[in-house]
Structures are given as C-alpha cells and as structure tokens.
Design a protein around this nucleic acid. Sequence first.
RNA 1: GGCGCGGUAGCUCAGCUGGUCAGAGCGUAUGAUUCAUAAUCAUAAGGUCGGGAGUUCAAGCCUCCCCCGCGCUACCA
Length: 720
Amino acid sequence: MPTSAKKRYLVTAALPYANGPLHIGHLAGAYLPADVYVRYQRLMGREILFVCGSDEHGAAITMRARKEGVSPREIVDKYHVLIRDTFQKLGVAFDIYHRTSEPLHHQTSQDIFRKLLEKGQFEERETEQYYDEAAGQFLADRYILGTCPVCGNADAYGDQCEKCGTSLSPDQLLQPRSALSGATPVKRPTTHWYFKLNEHEAWLREWINTGRLEGKQLHDPATWKAHVVGQCNSWLEQGLQPRAMTRDLDWGVDVPPEIPHSEGKKLYVWLDAPIGYISATKQWAADHRDNWERFWKSDETALIHFIGKDNIVFHCLIFPAILGAHGEFILPVNVPANQFLNLEGAKLSTSRNWAVWVHEYLEELPGREDDLRYNLIKNMPEQRDSEFTWKGLQETTNTELVGNLGGFIQRVFVLVHKNYGGLVPQANPEQTFRSGWNAEQETTIDRELFALAKKLEAMGAEVERFQFRDALRVLMEISSAGNALLQFNEPWKATLERTEEVRAVLFTAIQYAVALSAAMRPFLPFAAERLRTQLNLPPFEDSGELVALINDLLEGNAVLWPNHPINLPEHLFARLPDEVIEAQIQKLRTAQPPAQTDPPAPSPAAEYPPVKETISYEVFAQLDLRVATIVGAEKIEKADKLLRLTVDLGFETRTIVAGIAQHYPPEAVVGRQVVVVANLAPRKMRGIESQGMVLMAEDAQGRLSFVRPDEGWPVGFGVR
RNA sequence: GGCGCGGUAGCUCAGCUGGUCAGAGCGUAUGAUUCAUAAUCAUAAGGUCGGGAGUUCAAGCCUCCCCCGCGCUACCA
C-alpha cells in the first residue's frame, strides 16, 4: 500500500542521546529528511504528527555525570535544552520534543513491559555479573573499566574500548575495576528479563522482505532502501537471539516494582528509547485533547521512522518485534535510514572533535540556517556515505541559493517595481511569449502555469520516495526555468510595442515566485517565510498551501492576482565570503578536544594513558619475561588480527598467538627478537593455544612495535 | 574471516523490474545578455560505468572471481 493511501502519518526521528550536542551528521542522517518530509506533507494538507525527544537514560549518561561531578539529571537537563533549542533554531518543526525522563514515559514503558511479561515474551535468566562490593551494587558493562585486551588502553569500558573502537564484554577486560569505587568487582548472580526475539524471526523475515504479515500487505518492500533491507537480512540470516531488556542500573525506567526480583533493575535504554516515540505522542495528544491511539493503533496511520544507519536493526527488527509481540501497535511502513556523512574527507569523530557542531554553527554563522539545510539536503547520504565540505557549503550558497534562486526572485521584484510600481500587472491570457522550459516554444500564461504545477508534483513525488536530493534538484529546476523565462523574453526591454508581452512574462514570473515560496518551504523554511513576506502574503500555516497552489495552477489559474502589491526587493540570501569559510576550515584544523565542561559525547582519551595502580615488587617479580626469536609466523584463517607465531626461547619452542596481523605481515616478523611473557596462562584463540604473550609498544594512533633487545642478543634469558 | 551496502565525467552524486542508461548539478571552455548579490541563459566535455571472466540478440544494471571504501559481526590476553 502506498503511504499516500493512508489517512494520517506519524513520523519519528531518532531520539538524540542527551549527553552531547548535535553535529551535522545527525542532521543529514535523520532530522533534515524527516523535517522536509513532514513539512511537505503538511503543505499538502495531510495530517501528520512529528515526534521526537531526548533519550535521557543509559549508563553513558551516568558515567558522564560522575566524571563531571554532577547528577545525571543535570547532564540531561543541560543537553535536552541545548538540543531542543538547536532544533528549534534550525527550523526542525517537531510537533513535540519530549524527553524520556518524564513520568509519562516511565509509565508508558512500564506498561509495555508488563504487557510483554504477561504475554510470556520474556524469559528470566540468572547470569553472573560483576558486582561492586564497596558500592553495594551491580555494575553495568559501562561501569567496568579495565585494560583493553586489544590496544592496552587502561580505561576501556566493559562494552567497548573507545580508543580502538573494539566491542568488548566485561569478561574480556584485563584487570577489571569498578568505575564507582575502583574496587575489583566480583561475580554475583543476577536475574534479568530476556526478550524472546528468536521467536519473532520468521514473521519479521516475511514482513521485511514481502511487506506481508498475517496475509495483510503492510508495506511495499520495493520502497525500502537496499541497505536497510540488506542489513536486516544480514541479521536474520545469523539467527536472532534473546536479548536482555533490563539492566542493573540506578538511572532509568524501573522494572515495574510489583514484579518479583525487580529491585534495582532498570529497563534497557534501547528498550525504553523507542517507546519514547509513543510517550511523546501521548503527551502531544494530552496537550491537544486528542487521542494518541489513533496514531499508534490504527491501520490508517503510516508510521515512518527516520534514523541513521546505526539504528537500522533496532528500528526494523527489535522494536517492530516488541510492537508485534505487544499486539496492539502498528508497524512502520518504512524506515528510510540514511548512511553517514563525512567531513572534509574524514569520518566525523566526536572524540577528535572532527565535527561541525550545529549550535556553534548557528552562533558563528547567524542567519545561515537555510544555507546549511540546503547543502546538507543536497549532499544527503541517501544511498551511501557522503561528504560535507566548507568549500561545498560556500559553493552551494553562492551559486545556487544566491545566484540562481535568490537572483531570480530579485530580478522579478526589481522588474515589477520598475515597470508597475510594485503591483502585479494585468496580463492578457491570449498573449504569447517564450516558455521558460524551452526557448523555442511559444507559450501562454496558462500553459506555463500548468508546466509549473507539473514540476511541483514531480518534486512532491521525489519527497514521497524519500529522494530528498532529487526533490531539491526539481525545486532548483523551477528556479532555473524562471531565470530562463526572463532571459528568453527580456522583459527589461519594455518597449512600447512589447508592453503586453512584458506584462504576460512578468505576471508569469511572479506566479513562479509564489510557487517557489511554497515549494521552498520544506527545505528552506526561513527563506520561504521571508519570500512570503516580500510577496505580501500571509505567513505560512503549513496546512495545505502547496496542494491548493498546485490545484490552482493545474487549472491555469493565477495564484497572485493583478494589482496585488508586493514589497520592495530584498536579498533572499547572502553570499558566503571566503573569510568566513577560511575561518571555519582553520577552526576545524586546529580543533582542540573540547573543555571538560562542554565536551561532545564521551570525553576524549588523554594523550598519555594514566599510570596504573602501584604494585609491589613481589607482584612484578611474578612476571617471567624472556628474550626470544620468532622463527615462524603465519596468518590465522578467519581472523583479521591474529598471527600464529613460533618463538624460540632457547630452552624450548612455543606457539604464541598475537594480535598483530594488521601491523606486521608474517614474513616481516620472522627472525625478529622479541620479549615474551613466558609464564602467562595458556589461552585458546581461534582454536589455537597461545603459550605466552609478545610485548608490544604502542603509540597514540594504536600502532604497534616490537619491544626487543639489541641486535643478536642471546635468547632464553630473563628481562628485568 | 562472515554478512550487508557502495566503488559511474575534475568534484558531489542519479541511474526503478537488463534493450534512448551512459546522466544531473557544480567546476571548466566558448558565446549571449545586463533587469539581477562579478548574478542569468545557451552550447560543449566525450567518463573502457573498480578490474577480469561469463550468461544473453542485448549488461553499470544478471552470474562467478579479484581489488578498494564504509557498516555490522567474529577474532584480539
């Protein structure tokens, strides 16, 4: 079923995590496409609700709060306000920007949890988890620090090492310690609720790939993006596993207290976050005396999730499974996830501060919201990763916005003022002139307006297909045709015998300007509003203006009538000067990690890892380090990082598996002298027993180098 | 290593189920124009559609192999 057949729309945009500001990647990934889509549908007179809000739970926020010595509440309050205001300033027009720390959201999440429990969707599992005896609580993965087994970073988290990006489990950390007390955690049994995702695999597969569920056609899979379906099938092929939906945490939504063993348990943030869409809808409905259920529980609603590609699995498999398991909710008709935006040739990186922060942009380039929106939409990563450059922003602003679009509007206004004192001229409908769409073609006003309407429809069709770049291109084609219309007919040569022709041309041109004001609205809301004011038309209400306009044009009717007074010309856009661009490029190149009080995401790793806890000589002396020679090396099958080394210790030869394959090819290490830990407990990796460990030096980039004695040093003796 | 998505003109990117699919915008060149923020309009470039093999009357678009980028995943003592 095409989404346009639905009665109403519910659009969600990924909930921003409230522990850092927004960057342009967030905008290009989820918020701008959602905003364009929503604004367009409103202009087409469709009922559409656009919900979003701050995701305010999870261990990353409590961790950050601890680090900054404030409460989690202070963190989320700060970023909630910053992010909300950033969206507002950029013109992202949510109907509601809610937050998951609201009581309403807690209730909603708990109700859904209860329902799932009632329907037997959970299994309780007891597992061993790290427990901090000093602090008297279980430790979430994020709360366990230790040395990364991959890169040696002493401050890796239990779920991930942020230095090398490796995903970890707490058990993999060397020397685990509690982030709360610093104590060495101990294992204790704890109970958690696992959602039986595996039981939903079959219908999810069918639903994703065919759009059918229980015989009903819910969506057309051909309209889903290839990378979205691909990623889902990739997961489905590997088999879905039950997933823990609770955590031992002290910040988040409580597991409903009446449930046995619920004490100290919170809902997993990934469960409660998408439920935030529902609670935001509820809040909106409460504020507007409306019924939220008609958005979430009606087949006549088209639910669309706008997200970045990192969220695909959750929005296409796990959350739908939860909605399906619950039984009362509709499923999304599409999840038009975008890929990633790169910046000046490199991936965005919050820890390296390689980003353009939206709130800073708004401050440093005031009045240029639309410039950014335009460039990001034009370069939106719809099918693959794409790229933002400052030069590119300057180019699109100066050539396309200022030159083409702004230039056209300026020309029309100046000419109408020069010729007719600022009043829309009266034109003869029979008068012919050259078409803006084809210089060879003689045309009349109604035919020109019909062609214009067709273009507006074409633009809308692209928006419906989530092809926002193409939609923007069509918009610019209208502006170009307007310029061509003027160029071909030269209304500035208003000689006496051409009076009627010039009137018809400028009358048509001003209709173009009106059409553009509406067509621009989804993409360039601020400029659209300014143009509206210049045209001396009432402000946008974002309800059906575009569809009304298209209908008029299709019938050859004008949308601005003779003698309507327009205001004096005023530049719609401003050129972006070189200095501004250079300054931003400089800023990026010299970017320092942000101050501790206002950093993005997780705080950057210190240049040098901190010195570890002092140990006694006795502990040190337990290490048996030996000089050895690598006598053989080969790549291990199916492992990117591993080499199987044969090392000669003099008194014996051992096999050691080392994670150095990405730093040294096998042939380059044979013959090298190294230092090995000779008394490390053997460990199997990829089925091969590793009998020790080779010492490696590491630099700030994570590169590795052998630690070795002078050339030709005898092997087998100790290191001290 | 497995899986997924990409690799198309100098740049940024479109190309739906194989047969006007070899394209758009920007940049560049030439010409036109001067109402307009050194704005606009017209025309042009000739890119072996990552490489190789195959299927087909016909392949960027299908199959196989290889190379590169990104993501997920495994591995990492």
